[in-house]
Design a protein around this nucleic acid. Structure first.
Lengths: 246, 246
DNA sequence: GCCCCCGAATTGGTTGACCAAAAGATAGGC
DNA sequence: GCCTATCTTTTGGTCAACCAATTCGGGGGC
């Protein structure tokens, strides 16, 4: 079995406070997070064994196991049977995950999700206008070209449409926003796919995309925001014209 | 004990696939999430008991418990001893709150989160302006009054400040936006608490809040959006003037 | 001295018994 | 018939024993 790291057990004991018996697993998670982010453990290092954690926290092993299971789902630790529990890479990637999990319950709130998506897309366009690189402008242009060529192939059009939006979000230089937007889009995926029904709607969307592109390429945040707002309104109206209950 | 919902047990059995013994808890979580988001269960409804889930999944009760513990941390279910496990009907603050304890955000992630918060608050103000009820306008006015009286008691000022924002989000009539904003605020909790340092900053914030309030009370979405944008810019600048690394 | 194998120790995973909390059912009193 | 108290059942929470997986240390062979 792995030799335990050279930490002085007494030191670790000072960092973890015993919690009352019967305390919700959330409290155990909190304590463990404090331990994990307290600076004593670096990514890759091994946590104390479950039995030791249970003793120091003053809870049973079950509670520790449940808390560690949660931390593993969150990607904070990696549990290896027979070996131990290891701290994974930096926790900075947890942010988008935190917000995305919270969205899971909202999957049925389509109207509300569409509104939130609109707000985030508008903000993304505004940020992209001021932060986009020349290479990224080129990529947007390419998606616009693909859409122009695909008015009679709606599947291909929608694919370029999606890529256009993904690129804008990436160019916003805000990881939290990008990932949050992606989570919302995932929840709305069915509706997005049904968004365009014919060539005429594709032509309208293309015009709107071009206005967004031009504003972003011109680094005009206000115009980009306005153009995206128009687009989100059109897209929202299109979805609203579908029966949201079907 | 609560009567079990009228679901046909055979139906639920069809939806949950047995997983191999010894499979990681993550697989159990996955199955449960499929069950929970498959549309059969409405928010607030009660899941099958642990013992039944264990049987149907073909795993031990421990694995089910660990999976459910994780789902509770993630905010998806609510576990009540002696009663059962319920699908939540709104986002829990447990995860953001739990993580905010030890999750040391990098300066760049903090900036990103502040930006996202700004976008959401602005959108909330715009929606609130068009959707707020007369009673809710009264409540906003009361928070404004409290802030006026509290310029020399910053703790109380901040409390009214927080309530003011919560009320705006509630008046936006968009649960997804409200909950998302609350999660973001929880993650930014440390910075929010440090936001106001003296009476002068409180006076600026109060002026900005009053502008927001007046626009919302006048049902002027455009003005509300503009006023909230100013406020978020000021608040963001205030945080930026702090040393994000300290 | 190095490598391999085996046994012991350690660590996580599972199980079933038992305890704690809550809900439901039943009986008695008014 | 309604309300209250008590008992029973159900559900989640805890514990200790045992099993599965991994690591380490020691001994033997070359």
């Amino acid at each position: 079995m792995p030799a335990y790291p050279d930490d002085d057990p007494a030191t670790l004991r000072l960092e973890i406070e015993a919690v009352p018996r019967g305390t919700a697993v959330a409290e155990v998670v909190k304590q463990l997070i404090s331990l994990l982010t307290g600076g004593e453990l670096t990514p890759g290092s091994r946590l104390p064994p479950e039995r030791q954690l249970a003793e120091e926290l003053g809870v049973g092993r079950s509670a520790v196991r449940e808390a560690l299971a949660a931390l593993e789902i969150l990607g904070i630790v990696s549990v290896r049977p027979g070996s131990g529990t290891y701290l994974r890479d930096s926790t900075s990637e947890l942010l988008p995950t935190t917000l995305s999990w919270g969205l899971m319950l909202s999957a049925s709130r389509t109207r509300e999700l569409i509104e939130v998506r609109g707000a985030l897309e508008i903000q993304a366009a505004a940020f992209a206008a001021s932060r986009i690189t020349d290479d990224e402008v080129e990529m947007l242009a390419r998606h616009i070209e693909t859409m122009k060529e695909s008015l009679d192939d709606l599947d291909r059009f929608v694919e370029a449409d999606v890529r256009f939006h993904l690129q804008i979000a990436a160019s916003a230089d805000n990881v939290v926003l990008r990932d949050l937007l992606q989570s919302v889009r995932s929840l709305l995926r069915l509706w997005v796919e049904r968004g365009l029904r014919d060539r005429d709607q594709g032509a309208v969307a293309l015009r709107e995309h071009m206005a967004i592109y031009e504003a972003i390429a011109a680094h005009d945040s206000v115009a980009a925001e306005a153009a995206m707002r128009v687009h989100m309104t059109t897209a929202g109206d299109r979805v609203a014209s579908l029966d949201l209950d079907s």
